[in-house]
Amino acid sequence: MNLFKRTKYLTVGNEESKDINANAEEIPTIPDGMWIKCDKCNKILYNKEVEENLKVCPNCGGYFRLNARERISLIVDDGTFKEFNENMTPKNPLNYPGYEGKIKKIQEKTGLSEGVVTGYGEIEKKPCIIAVMDSNFMMGSMGSVVGEKITLAVEKATKERLPIIIFTCSGGARMQEGMVSLMQMAKVSAALGKHSDKGLLYITVLTDPTTGGVTASFAMLGDIILSEPKALIGFAGRRVIEQTIKQELPEDFQTAEFLLEHGFVDKIVERKNLKSILATILKIHNVRDVK
């Protein structure tokens, strides 16, 4: 009869699981968020170990996504970041049903007003303007406010004669804003054109994923284009392209490595080296240290 007795299961801090195992004695529990699964190798990892490794899988080297605040903390010198336009929030230009409620819910969840954080920062004492897109906010989709915040950041960099660095991470244009969203491609690109006319430096850092209208505009306009390893970078989806050209695409198509091989990316940089590489680029371009 012992074969049919309930065994003592390990719970994961879930109230429902506790009820199911209420009769078991001294059930050990694991706090929520202690473990995380790597999507690349499917291994269950100790979350603290992953965070200490800059959110890179210690087993296979796969990259977990960073949110905007984590990215800024990793790249910018402590205490130097000054955010711009942090309270700028989107409207609903097309009266899209449920859009305002969805935006409010995501704002509460992420603590962000929109899908990009912009501001002034220093990288190893070298001043620059930074824009960091966040995939947690509607997959970093480019709506009117994302375009406006990036444009204002570029214009500030132009006015103060500073380099600008944009970390891209986006699913593309935001469908709920339709044509208004697509117009941001031209607006940001025009601002970057004026920045370039002044002989100023623009660096893009492509992270996973960078797709759609963001790829088709400012992501690929950098004077220097860097990327994290194995980042997904492309415009249309793989299946759409294959159906259009009636050909099967290479296995590594739309990866950072594929784009590097074909001249679209200048260098793939590991996350642990990114700050020092950016500082070196700024130094080469005569960006002087802040005294």
Score class of each variant (00 low, 15 high):
239 R>I: 13
152 L>A: 01
16 E>S: 11
245 I>D: 12
60 C>Y: 04
242 E>D: 10
247 Q>A: 13
88 M>Y: 13
98 G>A: 03
222 G>W: 11
267 K>A: 03
27 I>Q: 10
32 D>L: 12
35 W>E: 04
66 L>W: 03
251 E>W: 04
78 D>C: 11
76 V>Q: 09
60 C>E: 11
211 T>D: 13
189 S>I: 04
111 G>C: 03
130 I>S: 06
279 A>L: 04
14 N>K: 14
266 D>T: 05
82 K>Q: 15
250 P>V: 09
108 E>T: 06
130 I>M: 10
153 A>M: 05
279 A>R: 01
159 K>F: 15
17 S>A: 14
247 Q>N: 08
99 Y>K: 11
245 I>P: 12
255 T>L: 00
125 K>A: 10
117 V>G: 03
135 S>I: 11
73 S>N: 14
100 E>P: 01
273 N>Q: 08
139 M>S: 05
110 T>L: 03
173 A>W: 11
252 D>C: 06
20 I>Y: 11
121 G>T: 04
154 V>D: 07
66 L>Q: 06
160 E>A: 08
174 R>S: 07
260 L>F: 01
237 G>S: 14
42 N>V: 02
93 P>F: 14
44 I>L: 10
219 A>N: 13
42 N>M: 09
238 R>S: 04
164 I>K: 02
66 L>V: 00
158 T>I: 07
29 T>V: 08
240 V>F: 12
195 H>L: 09
287 V>R: 02
81 F>D: 07
64 F>K: 02
59 N>A: 11
13 G>P: 02
182 L>N: 09
53 N>C: 04
35 W>S: 03
208 D>S: 12
39 D>Y: 06
107 Q>V: 00
272 K>Q: 13
213 G>V: 02
44 I>G: 06
290 V>Q: 15
139 M>R: 10
162 L>D: 09
249 L>W: 04
235 F>N: 13
268 I>Y: 01
6 R>N: 14
237 G>Q: 14
153 A>W: 03
41 C>R: 03
172 G>F: 08
217 S>T: 07
132 V>N: 01
208 D>C: 06
133 M>G: 00
97 P>C: 02
192 L>H: 01
250 P>C: 02
17 S>F: 15
143 G>Q: 02
178 G>M: 10
287 V>H: 02
203 I>K: 04
237 G>R: 05
117 V>L: 00
98 G>P: 00
81 F>K: 05
173 A>T: 06
196 S>C: 04
20 I>T: 10
260 L>C: 07
38 C>R: 01
101 G>E: 06
92 N>T: 07
131 A>S: 08
101 G>I: 02
230 K>Y: 09
241 I>M: 08
61 G>A: 02
289 D>C: 14
16 E>R: 12
19 D>G: 12
80 T>F: 12
67 N>A: 07
280 T>Q: 14
273 N>C: 08
217 S>P: 10
87 N>S: 13
19 D>I: 13
9 Y>K: 15
236 A>K: 15
100 E>L: 07
244 T>K: 15
23 N>V: 08
50 V>Q: 00
18 K>D: 15
126 K>Q: 12
225 I>Q: 07
168 T>L: 01
35 W>Q: 01
44 I>S: 11
280 T>H: 11
270 E>I: 02
